[in-house]
């Protein structure tokens, strides 16, 4: 399976993503610069964390107009997996691929620590290697991860099983303890915690690795059914 790691000016978790895919997962990955316009040959897209375009105006606001984002949108509408982590999540909501918005953390502090997450929906292509309700350890590192959406959107997220992960101890004020959501069709996931930083025991947790193994399994099934 071949993963594209999108690199915006100001991305800083692109190397972590690449490392997680190639060294911990043992799959292929390539960096795709924000100025590029094609994702041909890739099976999944990863939008890494960081501070794209310096977080100017709003987090993710400028990155949504990068040339590669049109192609990411096309890739997503084809039903292929797109994962945005941290700033990648912020880019996905600004680009309209996911509903809602990420506000400043309730306590105004940048938080960098391991959090416990509950797997709220283990039937997505990103979470199938977890069990429903399972609690996992994944680090966060953000100042603006306070997920907000209006009542109608929140009800829709719940109805359609779009809430993938929730915080056990809400660190940032997110509505409904939301840590990660998918789109309606389940092939786009945005989450503030960093699964790519939890793929080796040496770094404190391997709980993030199963997100990537889930994708590889789904990819393999997809190939089987389409061949």
């Amino acid at each position: 399976m071949k993963f594209a790691v999108i690199v915006f000016p100001g991305s800083n978790c692109d190397l972590d993503m690449y490392h997680a895919v190639t060294d911990a997962l043992g799959e292929e990955a390539s960096y795709v610069f924000h100025t590029e316009t094609s994702l041909d040959g890739f099976d999944a897209v990863l939008l890494p964390g960081g501070f794209s375009y310096g977080d100017y105006l709003r987090c993710g606001a400028i990155a949504q107009f990068s040339p590669i984002m049109e192609e990411v949108k096309r890739f997503a509408t084809e039903g292929k997996p797109v994962l945005g982590v941290c700033n990648g999540f912020q880019v996905l909501v600004e680009a309209g691929l996911l509903p809602g918005v990420l506000l400043r953390n309730k306590e105004l502090k940048f938080m960098c620590r391991t959090t416990r997450l509950k797997v709220a929906n283990a039937s997505t292509c990103f979470t199938s290697d977890y069990a429903d309700g399972e609690v996992i350890d994944i680090p966060i590192a953000h100042g603006e991860g306070n997920y907000y959406c209006d009542d109608a959107t929140y009800a829709m997220l719940k109805t359609h099983g779009q809430i993938a992960f929730t915080y056990v101890d809400n660190p940032n004020g997110s509505r409904g303890d939301i840590a990660g959501i998918t789109n309606r069709t389940g092939n786009v996931l945005g989450m503030m915690p960093h699964p790519e930083r939890a793929v080796e025991a040496l770094l404190g947790s391997t709980d993030g690795l199963r997100l990537f193994t889930s994708l590889v399994k789904q990819g393999a099934n997809h190939v089987k059914t389409t061949v």
Partner: peptide, 8 residues
Amino acid sequence: RLLVNPVM
């Protein structure tokens, strides 16, 4: 389209 995010 850019200057304001109407969600928030």
